[in-house]
C-alpha cells in the first residue's frame, strides 16, 4: 500500500492514475454512445436496453447491483481523475511562477492545450446529464424507466440540445488528446505505433461525438419522435 502511495505521490504516478481512469471513462463513453444509438431502433429496444443494464449480473447479483457497481467504478474514476488533474494543475502552476510575456505553441495541439477547460466542461455536463436523464430533476416530463420518452422530450428543448452538443464537442477535444496521451503516459506508445494511437484517438473521438450529437440533432429535426 505504501508503495502505491509513493507511486501516486510522484508526478508520473498521478498521470498514470489519470490515464487509467481516463481509459475506464473512455471505455464507458464508447459503450454508452453505442447504447445511445439504440434510440434509433425505437422505444422498445432502448427501454429494454435500460432494463438490461439494470438486470445485468442476475441471478448472482440482485437487480441493479451490477449497474451500481459500474456506477461506483465510474464515480471513483471520475473522482480520482479530477483529484489527480487538480493536483497536477497546481503542481504545474507552481512550476512557473513568472510566465512569459508571450509564448506561442509550436506543435502542441489545440486539444492538448485546452484539457483543463474541456475537462470541467465535461464535469458540468455529467452533473447536468445525471440530473436530466438519471434523476430527472431538471427534466420537463421525466418518466422513470421510459428512456425513449425522456430522450425525445428532453431534446425537444432546443437550448438543452445545444448544451449537449457543446458539451460533446468539449468531450471530443478531451478525447482527441486524451486517448493518444494515455498510451504515452502508460508507456505503451512508441514511434512505430504512434500513428496508430493518433488515428485511434481521432476515429474514436469522431465516433463518440458524431454518435452522441446525432441524437439531439435528429430529435430537433423531428426525424424521431
Amino acid at each position: 500500500m505504501s508503495r502505491l502511495f509513493l507511486f501516486y505521490r510522484s508526478s508520473i504516478g498521478k498521470k498514470v492514475v489519470m490515464a487509467v481512469t481516463g481509459l475506464v471513462l473512455f471505455g464507458f463513453v464508447v459503450v454508452h454512445m453505442a447504447g445511445n444509438l439504440k434510440v434509433y431502433q425505437g422505444a422498445e429496444k432502448i427501454n429494454a436496453y435500460g432494463e438490461f443494464l439494470r438486470a445485468m449480473g442476475s441471478p448472482v447479483f440482485s437487480h441493479g447491483q451490477v449497474l451500481w457497481i459500474a456506477r461506483i467504478v465510474l464515480l471513483a474514476s471520475v473522482a480520482l481523475h479530477i483529484m489527480a488533474a487538480v493536483q497536477l494543475i497546481l503542481m504545474n502552476r507552481r512550476a512557473r511562477p513568472v510566465g512569459y510575456t508571450h509564448q506561442d505553441p509550436i506543435q502542441a495541439t489545440y486539444a492538448s492545450r485546452t484539457m483543463i477547460w474541456s475537462g470541467p466542461v465535461i464535469a458540468l455536463f455529467v452533473i447536468y446529464h445525471l440530473l436530466h436523464f438519471t434523476a430527472g430533476t431538471v427534466h420537463p416530463s421525466f418518466r422513470a424507466g421510459d428512456i425513449y420518452h425522456n430522450v425525445i422530450a428532453g431534446f425537444r428543448v432546443w437550448y438543452v440540445s445545444a448544451f449537449y452538443i457543446v458539451a460533446m464537442v468539449g468531450l471530443g477535444f478531451h478525447l482527441y488528446h486524451g486517448v493518444w496521451s494515455l498510451f504515452q503516459t502508460l508507456g505503451i506508445n512508441d514511434v512505430r505505433v504512434d500513428r496508430f494511437f493518433r488515428r485511434l484517438a481521432a476515429v474514436a473521438t469522431v465516433a463518440v461525438v458524431a454518435g452522441n450529437i446525432s441524437i439531439p440533432v435528429t430529435v430537433l429535426l423531428g426525424l424521431i419522435s
Binding site: 508526478s11 498521470k15 497536477l88 512550476a95 504515452q184
Partner: peptide, 19 residues
C-alpha cells in the same frame, strides 16, 4: 523521478513542446 519532482518541475501533459 523522485529527484525531478522534488526540484519542483511540473508534470507532463504530452504537449510535445519540449521535442
Amino acid at each position: 523521478v523522485v529527484a525531478m519532482d522534488r526540484e519542483g518541475f511540473g508534470s507532463c501533459t504530452n504537449y510535445a513542446e519540449c521535442e
